[in-house]
Simulated assay, not measured.
Amino acid sequence: MSVFLQQLPALIGVVVGALGSYVVVVRGDRMRFGREQAARWEERRLGVYADYAQSVKKTVTVAYRISAGNGIGHHPDPLTLADAERLLAEANLERDPAGEALIMLGSVDVAEKGRAWVVTVMEMERFVRTGDQDRDAWQALLDRQRAGRADYYAAVREDLGLPPGHSARWPVLTDDPVPPQR
Rank of each mutant, 00 (worst) to 15 (best):
141 L>A: 15
5 L>K: 09
105 L>G: 05
100 E>Y: 13
2 S>G: 02
10 A>S: 08
149 R>C: 11
71 G>L: 14
38 A>K: 05
56 V>L: 04
5 L>F: 12
40 R>H: 14
9 P>F: 01
63 A>Y: 08
50 A>Y: 11
51 D>P: 06
94 E>G: 05
179 P>T: 14
95 R>I: 02
121 V>A: 06
152 Y>C: 05
61 T>M: 07
127 F>M: 07
38 A>N: 06
87 L>T: 07
179 P>Y: 03
34 G>W: 08
161 G>N: 05
157 R>F: 03
153 Y>H: 11
44 R>N: 04
117 W>S: 00
57 K>A: 11
162 L>P: 00
36 E>C: 08
130 T>I: 07
61 T>F: 05
181 Q>R: 13
111 A>V: 01
86 R>V: 15
116 A>G: 04
94 E>R: 12
45 R>C: 13
88 L>C: 04
45 R>A: 08
128 V>P: 02
52 Y>M: 12
24 V>E: 01
111 A>K: 07
171 P>C: 03
110 V>W: 14
65 R>V: 13
182 R>M: 08
119 V>F: 00
136 D>L: 15
142 L>Q: 13
11 L>Q: 06
181 Q>C: 06
175 D>R: 13
60 V>E: 06
74 H>E: 08
163 P>S: 10
104 M>Y: 03
174 T>C: 01
64 Y>I: 00
81 L>N: 09
46 L>D: 05
123 E>K: 15
121 V>C: 06
60 V>C: 00
133 Q>G: 10
115 R>M: 13
175 D>L: 15
26 V>A: 09
143 D>N: 13
41 W>N: 12
89 A>N: 09
112 E>H: 14
107 S>G: 11
107 S>K: 04
108 V>G: 08
1 M>T: 10
66 I>F: 03
134 D>R: 02
58 K>R: 15
18 A>Y: 02
178 V>F: 00
66 I>H: 02
125 E>S: 14
74 H>Y: 00
74 H>D: 10
119 V>S: 11
52 Y>C: 10
22 Y>L: 13
174 T>V: 03
128 V>H: 08
101 A>Y: 13
132 D>P: 00
12 I>A: 09
107 S>Y: 07
32 R>A: 10
60 V>Y: 01
11 L>T: 07
11 L>I: 14
26 V>N: 09
